[in-house]
Design a protein around this nucleic acid. Structure first.
Lengths: 218, 218, 218, 218
DNA sequence: CATGAATGAGGTTTCATTCAT
DNA sequence: CATGAATGAAACCTCATTCAT
């Protein structure tokens, strides 16, 4: 109870942009940067404190435990990102009369831009997802419910419009996400950041590749 | 020099199936299993010792450091796996008159089977690749030289036979590997192992997806 | 850089008598005492912690490594002692019209008193000088520059006044210091401390012995 | 009992040049060399074993404990050296009609040559005398009885012949030995060995210095 | 005699966390 | 709110010693 309550408060603080002291803000930023660089397990709270210019005690005053600090920087990001992600999906699909290819292109661009602005955090999430079962159990169902389900609906929608091949939607979804997520991971996690880098061509290739893979042959 | 020599000896021991005491064998096995489960950083040598039924000192007598233990279980696997991987590729391609699709299917099946037999180790490698720059710098160039280059040649070969679309070979390669590796990671690292599981259908989908993505339209 | 910085801070703390917590002070005192008794290599940090009444972690919070702890207690002592030693020499020599014998007697008394007040530390330094090349390389040049050079000048000075025999000054210096240092080592390091002990007579013998050895025959 | 008996056997083996296998011989030589270089506490038995080209178990088969190994290389040296040292003294003194100065010169030369041939061992003894109370209690009384007492007799002898000043013989002895031992320690322990080095001049200075210090003014 | 794998006590060091100021 | 000294459990690692072969 008390364990959760502090965490919930953290999340509330972030999303509701409630009171958050400068120090607290600095700690979160520094933690994200360092977790991204060296991984959660290899970053000590004393390093974070030094780098953030605060006393070690201050971290614990605000976040209670190191685990909490990790979740407190990850979860708000997710809770904020995923629903808006879903919103975007809906806007693209229903408000206009785009083809699936146009939607896909817009979606990837949109998500790439978002991740690009939060590279470090994305790194942290990807890395720690592999390690923390807690994180996995917290994020994946949420992700599935908010994002994948809507995507499934969309695939069905475009299937019914005859734009997509008649494979099981789950398989299509999985392959699509493998390519998209694989592309993001490859670009943002594995490679040393190519600061000035124009991704339009790569995006175009990914779109073409996926579309070829799922387009309904006429 | 002295740092490397112990490690080299470890590798030699494995590949040459030289003398390796029961305890030493047990330590390596246990380490792989536990690293796969909880990650390298979250597994202590004392836990490994207890689980393996040896004294903690025995680990260090044989492997010197914990880092060495990690590398000693990973590197032999790689040095053994990658060349044979490349050999397989060549056998499939040059010995017969297969289409690219047939080659691709055989390749994925072959590699899937191999990884399936070494799931734990595969997990460890994927996880630690994200963290350890040392591992990254050791493995990726090796992988690139042994595997990717031959694949590139093959893509060019099939391009000249008119089976593959005229995109830059590097882009084709990257997308293909994103799908294949993504498929393996998704199956073996992310999901809790579905012990009885028939992958033929999935493989077929992956092959079809890739082939659609790169097949030359006639 | 980072290795040195903590050590430099230690030294600064001592010489500038800056902030130093009670525990930190206690650790240093205890370490000196135990290093003197049993030697650096035979004293464990856990013993020091227990004897000093602190947690073992506290030692490392303040001194970083055991090596640092040794240097942190030795070096400030040296940097403080040697310059003042040189100052004393100059005061004796130039401010008054003493004979060399009077100077020598005052010098030995002065240094003996100083070492007597820091017996343990003196023991530690003598013992570890034999073992630690690092210490040797740090201390001996400093000692040579600060102390021996001035002594050489003095010997030359008294030579020109005709009080000292015409041997090469370096030889005279070496013999003198052999006797003086040998006397101190013999008194403070080798023998179990004779707490109530009046050294005046011994000092007188040393002075007479040296003076006989170097006095210019008239 | 059993502790001593093995050690005594070691000593017997050495002095009586009893059976001693090649391995045993190699171990002792290697141990002396490494103890001299890095000190007893900083030299591990596994290092000695590797350097000597034997299995670690072999060391313990022959010497029982590491402590024993130290004593087994030191004590025979002492028991052999000291009595013969004393013998030399007597030969010089009684067989001929040398002056004290001539005796002193011969003595220092003789001992310097002996130590020079056993530099490493001398280093070990000097270093470990500072640390090991056991060694101190074993060696110093023996040394005092065998060497110092005869020297005292000699000083008295030469005093009665009017060659030496009328100070208490113990004081004279102490100062003399301070200079002589200090000279040896300075030459063999502190300084990095000057391989080609002619000590005649230094010896002459030491002799002159001591003689000036104790010669009876006529 | 010789080996070297195995041990386990103990060494140094790290680090999340607490708490008095 | 913020600090940073203090903690102690646990991490990695070393090493003298034993013993089956």
């Amino acid at each position: 109870m008390s364990k959760k309550s502090l965490l919930d408060e953290m999340i509330a603080q972030t999303t509701l942009s409630k009171k958050k002291t400068d120090k607290q803000q600095k700690i979160a930023e520094t933690a994200v940067k360092m977790f991204a660089e060296k991984g959660y397990a290899n970053t000590s709270t004393s390093e974070i404190a030094k780098e953030a210019g605060v006393a070690e005690g201050t971290i614990f005053r605000h976040y209670g435990t190191k685990d909490n600090l990790l979740l407190a920087v990850i979860l708000p990001f997710i809770k904020e990102s995923l629903p808006s992600m879903a919103e975007n999906v809906f806007k693209e699909v229903y408000s206009e009369d785009k083809s699936f290819e146009e939607f896909l292109r817009a979606f990837i661009k949109n998500r790439r831009s978002f991740i690009s602005q939060n590279q470090e955090l994305f790194k942290v999430i990807v890395k720690e997802l592999l390690y923390s079962d807690e994180l996995k159990e917290e994020l994946l169902p949420f992700f599935s419910e908010i994002v994948l389900n809507r995507f499934l609906m969309m695939i069905n929608h475009y299937k019914s419009r005859g734009e997509i091949v008649e494979l099981p939607s789950e398989k299509i979804l999985k392959l699509m996400f493998t390519v998209i997520v694989g592309y993001f991971v490859s670009d943002f996690v594995l490679t040393p950041k190519p600061s000035a880098y124009h991704p339009e061509e790569d995006i175009e290739n990914v779109v073409r590749f996926i579309m070829n893979g799922i387009r309904k042959e006429s």
